[in-house]
Design a protein around this nucleic acid. Structure first.
Lengths: 338, 338
DNA sequence: TCAGCACCTGAGAACGGTCACAGTTCTGTA
DNA sequence: TACAGAACTGTGACCGTTCTCAGGTGCTGA
């Protein structure tokens, strides 16, 4: 006779099997959608699952299969960037939802300090997660070396400088997007276009500037380029340095909305009107853009798609599938600032 | 003879035991810092751990102990709030670090849509995490009912309206902080002080207004109160509504920095100077405050302490300890705006 | 001399899944 | 009629821990 599904404990697969009148092996096959199970058995097990309220124990499952069914969202940026940049929250939320939709769990790992880096390395190396979404933009991130060395399935957000070919990544078409914006500014009649670029050791800092230079061709003037670190403050001071050198600019392209916001502040202080005296364009469309005064013309990164593709790609890499990289287009969003 | 620690596989506790020349039981005792193990055995095991590079398999551990050693950071706010409000990122990061420091894993759960809510409920109920940090401010959050009903260890961020006594929480002293700010504005000579309060169904919306009213006493004028939803836009429109009714105000206290920022915009548009014509104060000190023009006088929430205490408290609840709540003080930060 | 105790140890059974394998029935074909 | 193979099912080993329990020491005190 089938034993009763036992008192207080959470129901196990054996309880389900007992209720359904089959073996736990068959129950497992039903649960995993396996072939070679009769319709009757399937029905009985499914009913038993419903009546017992069974849910799989992921730890037991992970132990048996050797797969954790969870992925890490690994942040290696210094503290102040996460605070200031809405970009990270958007990506994080998107990744959490994409992971959840695939039945995977997203764990958040922060490696700001040296000690945290060591902890994270050990955690990941121990196989507690199946793979890692690396949210790091700087070249030669020591953690990336560790991940590669340990053979951890990794997908980077943005082109990982220095490891371009080795690590699959999902990225916006940096150079192409910058060309699009530069051309747009030119068609609007601007000719003295400055650029507030990102840090030289980040893909955004490097390739957006490259695209900008290409689109401007002979009109490109290195005097009109300054680098920031994507923060508002850095955009403000970069703008000031540019204005100090050349007062004849008629447009600025910033490599992030946050830096564009800083530029707006600097221009206002200099008594210049936007867009009448100087047009301003940003990059990201992170939500800040439309709230600025004037609302910012910018390149919209396809955030949802990026996080979605990162999770998909990571699952492919984890599953041993092909290791490709994905480049997504950004859209020009025209608002009042340029 | 002890078997060799085997080829490709990751070392297990039995490998460690073999290398150390003890049983896996003894190895387990050493690892868990248990009593009743001889110094020699301890040494041998510790050396063996070092040479084999052993790390515990958390899934096996979780299966054996029935404890997941991980906690959830559960977001139930609608999408746009997470994007706009830096508060969440700060809390999240703090919680991740606090959890990591205690050897626990933080998983991010997002319950924005109805479908996600169901998934999250099932996930949590299945015992995949030991407990939940609930980041939700609105009254009668359906998820909170579920958590309480299922007996899931839960710690709320902010006073959970409607369940104040039932759910342990970590919160800033809402009313007291508001009193502090209101008194400060009065000592600066302001007498017609408006308030942009938060939503009525959030603790910040309710108790900050309460403290404000208490501090003002007979001078409190309900005409000067408007409610927003903590976003910048809502602060801007609330400010406009107040100005439309009463043009004689000389100060505004907003229940969030974001709303204060919106108020700044509305005041500027109305041709009023800050702080000369109208003083403006915020709440949170979320990083935005010091970047505003003029920099914002605000109440600083002790973010690091809040996330730290939430994790500590949750671990106590999980461990069956006492279920207290914690109220932390906020500090007045004086900048140029008031 | 030996019971009693404190200290230490190893064997082996859980924990809740998956999976390989062997066994049973059923169908179709020589 | 025999038999191959497909379709289905149950058994039991295994994943890597923890934890209980039954000892084995060596020391103390009667």
């Amino acid at each position: 006779m089938a034993t009763t599904p036992s008192a207080g404990r959470k129901p196990t697969i054996r309880d389900v099997a007992n209720v359904a009148g089959v073996s736990h092996g068959t129950a497992s096959r039903v649960i995993n959608g396996g072939k070679w199970v009769s319709p009757e058995a399937r029905d009985a097990v499914e009913r038993a699952i419903a009546t017992t309220g069974y849910t799989v124990n992921r730890h037991a499952q992970a132990l048996a299969t050797g797969r954790a069914n969870s992925i890490a969202f690994l942040l290696t940026e210094p503290q102040h960037l996460l605070f200031a940049d809405p970009t990270f929250s958007i990506l994080l939320r998107g990744a959490a939802e994409a992971a959840a939709a695939r039945g995977a769990t997203l764990v958040l790992l922060v490696a700001g300090t040296e000690a945290e880096r060591a902890n994270v390395a050990e955690y990941v190396r121990a196989g507690h997660v199946d793979g890692v979404l690396l949210i790091s933009s700087h070249e030669a991130d020591p953690l990336l070396e560790i991940l590669i060395g340990a053979g951890i399935p990794t997908v980077a957000c943005g082109i990982p400088l220095g490891h371009r070919g080795e690590v699959p990544h999902v990225s916006v078409d940096e150079a192409g997007s910058a060309r699009t914006m530069a051309r747009y500014l030119r068609t609007k009649g601007h000719s003295r276009i400055a650029m507030i670029a990102g840090p030289r050791d980040t893909p955004g800092g490097r390739y957006r500037l490259e695209g900008f230079r290409e689109a401007l061709g002979d009109d490109f003037d290195p005097e009109l380029v300054e680098h920031g670190d994507y923060t508002e403050e850095s955009g403000e001071s970069a703008m000031e340095r540019i204005l100090a050198r050349s007062s004849d600019i008629d447009a600025v392209f910033a490599a992030s909305d946050l830096m564009a916001s800083g530029a707006l502040t600097a221009l206002r202080r200099a008594g210049l009107r936007v867009p009448q005296d100087v047009a301003v364009a940003g990059f990201d469309d992170s939500g800040l853009a439309e709230r600025l005064d004037p609302p910012l013309t910018t390149m919209r990164q396809p955030w949802d798609q990026i996080s979605e593709e990162m999770v998909t790609l990571l699952q492919q890499v984890v599953g041993g599938g092909l290791r490709k990289s994905i480049t997504l287009p950004a859209d020009l969003v025209v608002r009042a600032s340029a």
